[in-house]
């Protein structure tokens, strides 16, 4: 229970400080405060897709349906946080570039990533047998993950983009954020990570109980 209290307090600190302290990028103004939520959400999405990859690889190795649950729950959360990052990014885009959607390389690549993971769930829902579903979904999830670093890290850096790229690390590789910004940003990163792990574990417990109930009913 203690870590839940810590999570609650860290997030309260992040929310209060994000709006009470000066905006992290003065030239952009108040809209740049969204940085404290948008970047950790994107980070959690990447982390969740990594969890999904690990679960999928483990399933193919051991053929244990618990690993399939791990991959599915992680992919669900990755998609959820990816949508949240897209929505917060769109709000930022509306304020700074006067349009919710600009087909900027980063927006386009996140849209493609959402389609790829959307297809993962479509694939899962189209297959009946749990073993066959888990096997095909695991293979698909591995291929889906391979596109992720390319879409999130490579495309937006190779093509010219409106998206600010020097908020954390500058072109020279040095950390550009001020101490004040770091004091809010890193706790936010930690809080979102703990929140993800909490929901992930909760999702796994619910899946396990569901499976047990199905097995009990079949007996």
């Amino acid at each position: 229970m203690w870590w839940k209290v810590i999570l609650f307090l860290i997030m309260v600190w992040v929310i209060v400080a994000a709006f009470a302290y000066p905006a992290p990028q003065q030239q952009i103004g108040d809209a740049s405060r969204i940085f404290y939520f948008h970047v950790p959400q994107a980070w959690v999405a990447v982390l969740a897709f990594c969890f999904s990859l690990v679960g999928s690889v483990n399933y193919l190795k051991k053929r244990n349906l618990v690993d399939d649950d791990r991959a599915r729950v992680a992919a669900e959360l990755g998609t959820l946080f990816c949508i949240l990052a897209t929505v917060t990014g769109s709000i930022f885009a509306k304020v700074t570039w006067h349009s919710f959607w600009n087909w900027d390389p980063r927006e386009t690549s996140i849209f493609i990533l959402l389609l790829i993971y959307g297809a993962y769930f479509a694939l899962r829902s189209a297959i009946d047998g749990p073993e066959k579903r888990a096997r095909l979904a695991a293979v698909y999830a591995i291929f889906a993950f391979v596109t992720m670093p390319f879409l999130i890290f490579v495309v937006p850096r190779v093509l010219p983009s409106l998206h600010p790229s020097d908020s954390i690390v500058g072109e020279s590789g040095k950390i550009t954020m001020s101490g004040e910004t770091a004091m809010i940003f890193f706790p936010s990163l930690a809080a979102f990570t703990i929140l993800f792990i909490w929901i992930y574990r909760l999702g796994l417990r619910v899946s396990r109980r569901q499976r047990e109930l199905v097995e009990e009913a079949m007996r």
Binding site: F8, M11, V12, I15, A18, F19, A20, D30
Partner: peptide, 17 residues
Amino acid sequence: SNYTVMVVTLVIWIGIF
């Protein structure tokens, strides 16, 4: 308006938690 958004965000967080 910053404080209004802060309060709304806090309420959302308390709800989710």
